[in-house]
Design a protein around this nucleic acid. Structure first.
Length: 652
RNA sequence: GCCGACAUAGCUCAGCGGUAGAGCAACUGAUUCGUAAUCAGUAGGCCCCCGGUUCAAAUCCGGGUGUCGGCACCA
């Protein structure tokens, strides 16, 4: 006599075991038609599942968030059937729903190409139109393995073999075709609908392990309806328009070339942007009591052996030698990290507890040999500059330093236009230095610090650095993509390995703890993110070209030059456009170049010593005397960390 | 690094065995114009590199390199 409690609190009793389909029907024909699946005591289940005891039941309709996941998962099954129908001999493996869609990994000698998509999609539409019910069956383990092996489905058989003993083996039929699957599924293939599209093919390792066979993966996207699909495709187009590689070229910020793979050639405008960000960061670090240092690029392997990098990180390091006979034996490495060098400065003389916490910062230029496939524009490169710092402190200072750091990082992200971030806590990786006892200590200290600093995090198991656990700060950009930038890592290992110590209050020698921390991560990566976040239309204080002074007639040129010079003297980044072109053309060009302000000067303005300011890409115009225009723009161009006190003064 | 695709003018791309093309940008000239493309002309190419097939290769084949999309890796 199961009593079913619905989300509105009402209870319905049934005489015996009852399916979701029957419950929905008992509630009303509308729901019976709309229900795709259900949630029983918080767990998603097929509508056809029988409930034989009291339970809370919620029906999932197309409008519910869970529906998308169901649609995508079912769509993956439809894809798999279509592929096996069109390409006999292809083995199926797994096909989960993912963010924005789904994929299915196939084992086939010949990889798929996008040219195969139209045929596959057509077959998928047939399967959806066929509207075959998804029918769940539970099979005996051995029988299931035999069944799949007989059909040459070695991967499926492998999956079953690796399932824990006692796990129910379920398969889902859709017409003639079936797949091993945990479920749940919607009622039938028809519920998938037609708002899906195959997106791309890619290789993917079986079980994500690079030692395994490469499978052929087909990615697709699927939505509730055509409108959602359109919106998603439009978002992808927007992402493409924002691509920092495209904008970098269009705005003449930087380029990359074969002779320096993974290193950026910064052009004047890009470097201006870089310097604006760097100057801002330097002021923020100065204000936060960091001491900036500069350490060598090329360092003898002996230091890397001592630090542990030679053992744990060598495959990522660039090595350098010289021809000179006397020096031939010496192996130098381009530094991949700054920490060992910072410890050298710490160790250079005896340190007192009074100096702690000692915050040592460096805009540290690092080189790492990254796998070729990892390179991506200026976001993933082999030569980059970290906004790196190491805080030498006592264990008791870990928590307050963490709080201080999170505070600094939040305000910096806000200044760059990012309103929120998430935090991940990464604990000990398989490949690591230091004993388990030290790791216990470090992880505990960092958790405690989060508690005290009020930082909420999600656990990211096994992803820590080789020397310590870390917090990772993840930004979300304007179109919803996540970027990991900041990091804070607790390190008990390196001070030990490199023999760092200080004299404590009682005169004894103690080991400091090192906190490795970065806010932007690397300038290259962060500037890429910044470009995409703002689609190249930077806030005024960051724009590489803030103002273009544009003339309407040649007669206005002398005053335009004067105006541009006055702006430059006020610290503005300004260019003059004196070309013999119509003003319409100049407006269009500078909108295209993402210039934030156009200062237009015609004959009238030249005569009265004024400019017309137009905020691009907007249309409003404002006529101002030159000195006022300069003052106003200069105020607007003041970086946020310098502007704040000024505003406070004005308010007082 | 692995799988796949791609590489032609500064940019975006067409050409796919028979003399290398377009649009935009650039340059020159005319025009002096009031807020999202003025007109005319000129110039611009080791068709990524190295081999091979062919009477003939940008085009077909092999090998490199790089880029792009994933995977793996990661700031």
């Amino acid at each position: 006599m199961p009593a079913i409690t619905l989300p509105d609190g009402s209870v319905r009793s049934f005489d015996g075991p009852v399916t979701g389909t029957a419950i929905a029907a008992s509630i009303g024909p509308g729901l019976a038609k709309a229900a795709l699946a259900m949630e029983v005591d918080g767990r998603l289940a097929d509508l056809s599942a029988r409930i034989d005891r009291d339970a809370r039941v919620r029906f999932i309709t197309r409008r519910d968030p869970e529906a998308l996941e169901l649609i995508r998962h079912d769509c993956a099954h439809v894809l798999a059937e279509a592929v096996q129908a069109l390409f006999p001999g292809t083995q199926v493996t797994i096909g989960p729903a993912i963010e924005n869609g789904f994929y299915y990994d196939f084992a086939r000698n010949e990889p798929f190409t996008p040219e195969d998509f139209p045929a596959i999609e057509a077959k998928m539409r047939e399967i959806v139109a066929r509207d075959s019910p998804f029918v769940r069956e539970e099979w005996d383990r051995e029988e299931a393995i035999r069944y799949f092996l007989e059909r040459g489905e070695r991967y499926k058989a492998q999956i079953i073999e690796d399932l824990p003993a006692g796990e129910t083996i379920s398969v889902y039929r859709q017409g003639e075709w079936l797949d091993l699957c945990r479920g749940p599924h919607m009622r039938s293939t028809g519920d998938v609908g037609t708002a899906f599209k195959l997106m791309k093919v890619a290789g993917a390792y079986w079980r994500g392990d690079h030692r395994n066979q490469m499978l052929s993966r087909i990615y697709g996207t699927a939505w509730r309806d055509g409108k959602e699909l359109e919106a998603y495709l439009a978002m992808l187009e927007e992402a493409e328009r924002r691509d920092h590689r495209r904008i970098g070229r269009e705005m003449d910020l930087f380029h990359l070339q074969e002779e320096a793979v993974g290193s950026v050639f910064w052009h004047p405008k890009g470097w201006r942007l870089y310097r604006t960000v760097e100057s801002y960061m330097r002021r923020r670090l100065d204000a936060a009591d960091y001491a900036e240092v500069r350490t060598p690029q090329l360092v003898d392997r002996r230091l890397w052996e001592a630090s542990g990098h030679w053992e744990k990180f060598r495959e990522n390091m660039f090595l350098a030698t010289v021809e000179d006979e006397a020096e031939k034996h010496r192996v130098l490495a381009l530094k991949p990290m700054n920490c060992p060098c910072h410890v050298q400065i710490f160790n250079e003389r005896l340190r007192s507890y009074r100096e702690l916490p000692l915050r040592m910062a460096e805009f540290g230029s690092c080189h790492r040999y990254e796998p070729s496939g990892a390179l991506h524009g200026i976001m993933r490169v082999r030569a980059f500059t970290q906004d790196d710092a190491h805080i030498f402190c006592t264990e008791a200072q870990i928590a307050p330093e963490t709080a201080r750091f999170v505070e600094l990082l939040s305000t910096i992200y806000r200044d760059f236009g990012f309103e929120s971030f998430r935090v991940k806590f990464s604990d000990r990786p398989a490949r690591r230095a230091g004993t388990d006892a030290v790791w216990d200590q470090a992880e505990e200290a960092l958790k405690e610090a989060c508690r005290i600093a009020g930082v909420d995090y999600v656990l990211n198991p096994g992803e820590g650095a080789f020397y310590g656990p870390k917090l990772e700060f993840v930004l979300r950009d304007a179109i919803g993509r996540d970027w990991q930038c900041g990091t804070l890592q607790v390190d008990f290992v390196l001070p030990e390995r490199l023999g760092a110590e200080y004299v404590a209050e009682d005169g004894s020698r103690r080991r400091p703890v090192m906190l490795h921390r970065a806010i932007l991560g690397s300038f290259e990566r962060f500037l890429g993110i910044l470009i995409e976040q703002h689609a190249g239309r930077f806030p005024f204080w960051l724009a590489p070209v803030q103002v273009v002074v544009a003339t309407i007639v040649d007669d206005a040129a002398p005053f335009a030059r004067e105006a541009a010079a006055a702006m430059a003297r006020a610290g503005l980044r300004v260019e003059a456009d004196l070309r013999n072109e119509k003003i319409d053309r100049k407006v269009k060009d500078h909108i295209g170049a993402r210039v934030p302000v156009l200062a237009v000067i015609g004959r009238r303005e030249a005569e009265q010593g004024a400019v017309v300011l137009r905020r691009l890409p907007g249309r409003e115009q404002e006529l101002l005397p030159l000195p006022e225009a300069v003052a106003r723009l200069a105020a607007e161009g003041t970086p946020p960390d310098l502007a704040a006190p000024k505003a406070a003064v004005a308010a007082a």
